[in-house]
Amino acid sequence: MTEFLQQLINGLALGSILALIALGYTMVYGILRFINFAHGDIFMLGAFAGFYLAPKVAMFLPMPSIGGGLAVMGISMAICAVVGILIEKLAYRPLRRSPKLTVLITAIGVSLLIEYTCQNDHVFGAAPKSFPTIFPEYHITQLSGLSLNSNQIIVFAVTLILLLALRFIVLKTKIGMAMRALSFNPEAAALMGINTDIVISFTFGLGSALAAAAGILFAVNYPSIDPLMGVLPGLKAFVAAVLGGIGNLPGAALGGVIIGVTETLVAGYISSTYRDAIAFGILIIILLVKPSGLLGKKEIEKV
């Protein structure tokens, strides 16, 4: 029983990070309807930004501390938001009226460009780097042997807060209303006087900031960062977003948690050799049974 509970905690911890990445994915997809393959790489850039920022921030704030950690996270989110907006402006905006495939291939190109550039010896290099401790760490070990880490609680809390904040932005603010209008019908939104370029830039900035936050929290939990660290979590988070119903914020969070828990339980109890295939297996089953995802609305094809 203890083992099972521990596996459940492991799964929830992993799942909440996937959920955080999936939130960014689902935002961008919800508005623009395309898979931003570079999302996983922005996640990586976020972690590296934190790696280089932490010593600088430590000159002004105590480190590790909640305040210092949040400062590192905030600055790195801002940096990645700018990077995301730039990528959208340079690579995706010119293709807004092109077929989806073209945009997808461009996104893959951007993703490869970031990965190979960062692997270069003169940039970050391919060797893993150890991520500094930015949040104070406590271990909570129960008598029965259950163990929980303060970092895992931070991830859980941040995911929940960001989910609520995003829902607030999307549902209660003016820009959020514009985003929803754009997602519903871009042409009509433009006709109604919405500046689509600004809304899309904002969405990208927000999505990239979320990716950066996820990158930092991922690195805090798994303090070994390298230029390819975003590839697998990125793919799994996308699967999580589709699982929950793409474009649906609570759905993305739910999807992330489901993938995290299932993966952990299968790896712990059945076989860990098929671990990489589990997320995709779940995805295929879900899409066959309920293609709109768990919480997604069914889209009716208009002729």
């Binding site: 690579a91 293709l95 190109g109 460009l113 190979y116």
Partner: peptide
């Protein structure tokens, strides 16, 4: 890096 840059430029 050149390969991925070419890819993006061609797509654009």
């Amino acid at each position: 890096i050149i390969y991925s840059l070419l890819l993006i430029i061609l797509m654009l």
